[in-house]
Design a protein around this nucleic acid. Structure first.
Length: 603
DNA sequence: CAAAGTCGGGG
DNA sequence: GTGTACGACTTTG
């Protein structure tokens, strides 16, 4: 028996002998530091909960399904009450949807809970481990013969026993490799059937800069390969030898990766770039695909930039200019083939442009990825997923983990009929006062710090504290809408926001005391992530596909918000500040001596 | 006027 | 894969 410590990069599961085996992809710490590691856990079982109508009948009915391995009782909090649920253990994660559909309509079954939590996510939550943080496991290394998947010889495959131990660890140093391809497309947009890849640019966060191409150049970073197939082969070799933790592209989910897949298939090149030797995988994620490389994390910065920046366009050039204030030289896409065909100086310019793009991706990544990294460590879901999640989804997965921690049942996602019903309703928004036209002088601005999070906490706005009737002394009543929330106990969501804000204050204090600039920066990103999380938490009440959706909560929060800002404006007016514009959580005002104020209709 | 359709990024 | 989700804007019926 030996033990291994590693940074958890990614996680999935495979099936061996009809049983699910969790695979944790990591980077070793300590002995063999930096090497890739795949940890197998064969001892985790999928489970769901059932709310029975008739307990005895339900257990009897359930015993008739061979997907079920075990039935037991579990006590969980749900909507402010403690309830008993049947806990059903199954043999395989893929049996869950099958069983769910079979038992859904049984008379003895009232409801099925936690049936839509992907197996690897369940594992992370139940084992209290976090991606991008360290984990320690006991077990033994496997030799090649006992592994079901192809594997590079220097990747350690480790079968664990017992439980994975989370280690309180520093922010990991990761190796990143950015890539960008150029294509010769004389006729409109590139067609992978016809148009060859002519360049693959690579840039790492530790100094590697290279352009692979089928043409020669005196530029020293250009490496010339005989054919496109050789170029793709070399690309695979470099990924294997550099062994990056992160592969970063720009719109690579939708362009570069599918293109590389298509060309490699056409040219019979094997893309074994995963640490388990597997190739590129594509996952349908709603309306788009995402490209997945096992053991490494493929990040598409385009998706992140859309989330983090508020811009009119999200081209690489535009984003680069926004972040660094510098224009990046551009070769228009429809002229690339001319630069390529003409050779000489034009070709040289194309090489430069191509490398520039990969380098820009590295720089943008260095600036923007730390925030996603923090979200990963806070939310506790894989970086790959976090990099593709909307903030609302992050909030939801954060809440799911917290619910597990305190022994609460996770609400179900809305059914399609619930979803369409919810979509019709929309909570009134924040208070907006149209700006008073003109140029104003002596402007003062006022805004509430974290208005909605503060309201949720101070008014205890939560699905589990919402009541129809209550003694006025024991509850908060929202203005306008009249929804009532118990003052005690502290609701699920308010308690969690409270903890987030407390943690943020702690980190800010730590940040102010930090002497080392790098440490300060890391702490700053941490507190930013917590702030974003707290501010997004209100959304779970108003977005129709969320598990903690409750229109009454959303309505109450915005109603209190409007009430607070109007009252504040009124108060300010008494001191001579006349509001000229207001929006949701703040307003601008000019100072006017009292006698000059005329009554106007709004406030 | 609501419903259905398109598009972003990439070359 | 304990799958299938955006949102702003334009065009169509």
């Amino acid at each position: 028996m030996e033990s291994k410590r590693f940074v958890l990069l990614d996680i999935d599961y495979i099936t061996e002998d009809d049983k699910a085996v969790i695979r944790m992809f990591g980077k070793i710490k300590g002995d063999d530091e930096g090497k890739s590691l795949i940890v197998l856990d064969k001892h985790f079982k999928p489970y769901i909960y059932v709310v029975p109508n008739d307990e005895e009948k339900c257990i009897e009915d359930l015993n008739g399904f061979d997907e079920i391995e075990m039935v037991g009782w579990a006590r969980k909090g749900y909507m402010g009450e403690i309830k008993d649920f049947l806990r059903i253990t199954l043999n395989h994660p893929q049996d869950v949807p099958k069983l769910r559909d079979k038992i859904r309509d049984l008379d003895s079954v009232n409801n099925i809970m936690e049936h839509d939590i992907p197996f690897y996510r369940r594992y992370l939550i139940d084992k209290a481990i976090f991606p991008m943080a360290e984990v320690e496991v006991d077990g033994q290394c496997l030799d090649e013969n006992s592994i079901n998947f192809m594997c590079e010889s220097d990747v350690c495959v480790f079968e664990m026993n017992g439980e994975p131990k989370p280690i309180n660890s520093e922010f990991p140093e990761l190796k990143t490799l950015s890539f960008d391809i150029e294509v010769r497309n004389p006729k409109g947009m590139p067609q992978s059937e016809e148009d060859p890849i002519i360049m693959i640019s690579l840039s790492s966060n530790y100094g590697l800069q290279k352009v692979l191409s089928t043409k020669k150049s005196p530029l020293k970073y250009v490496e010339t390969l005989k054919t496109e197939a050789h170029m793709l082969q070399r690309f695979v070799e470099i990924i294997k030898s550099e062994n990056p933790d992160l592969l970063i592209g720009y719109n690579s989910d939708n362009f570069d990766m599918p293109y590389i897949r298509d060309r490699a298939a056409k040219l019979n090149v094997k893309l074994g770039i995963g640490t388990d030797g597997s190739g590129l995988k594509f996952m349908r994620r709603g309306y788009t695909n995402s490209a997945l490389v096992k053991g490494r994390i493929h990040v598409d910065l385009y998706l992140l930039m859309r989330r983090y920046l508020q811009l009119d366009r999200y081209t690489l050039e535009r984003v680069y200019r926004e972040l660094f204030g510098v224009e990046k030289e551009d070769v228009p896409g429809d002229e690339i083939f001319e630069y390529w065909d003409n050779g000489g100086e034009m070709l040289e310019k194309l090489f430069k442009y191509s490398l520039d793009d990969a380098v820009a991706v590295t720089k943008i990544g260095e600036k923007m990825l730390p925030l996603s990294m923090e979200f990963t460590r806070i939310v506790g879901q894989p970086f790959f997923d976090i990099a593709r999640m909307a903030t609302g989804q992050m909030v939801e997965w954060y809440l799911i983990r917290k619910a597990y921690e305190i022994g609460d049942m996770v609400p179900n996602k809305p059914s399609s009929s619930q979803y369409s019903e919810r979509r019709g309703k929309k909570a009134a928004g924040g208070y907006v006062k149209d700006p008073v036209m003109g140029l104003h002088e002596n402007i003062v601005s006022f805004d509430f710090r974290s208005l909605y999070p503060s309201i949720i906490i101070s008014k205890n706005v939560s699905p589990d504290t919402l009541v129809d009737e209550c003694d006025i002394n024991n509850c908060h009543v929202a203005p306008e809408v009249g929804h009532k929330f118990l003052k005690e106990p502290v609701g699920f969501v308010p308690s969690i926001i409270g903890n987030i804000l407390k943690e943020r204050v702690r980190i800010k204090t730590q940040m102010n005391n930090a002497e080392n600039a790098r440490e300060k920066q890391v702490l700053d990103v941490q507190q930013q992530a917590l702030k974003r999380l707290a501010n997004s938490m209100y959304g779970v009440y108003g977005y129709s596909r969320f598990r903690w959706y409750r229109i009454e909560c959303a309505e109450a929060v915005t109603a209190w918000g409007r009430d607070f800002i109007k009252k504040t404006m009124l108060q300010a007016k008494k001191y001579g500040f006349k509001a000229i514009y207001a929006d949701t959580d703040g307003f601008y005002a000019t100072y006017i001596p009292k006698d000059d104020i005329h009554d106007d209709k709004e406030n």
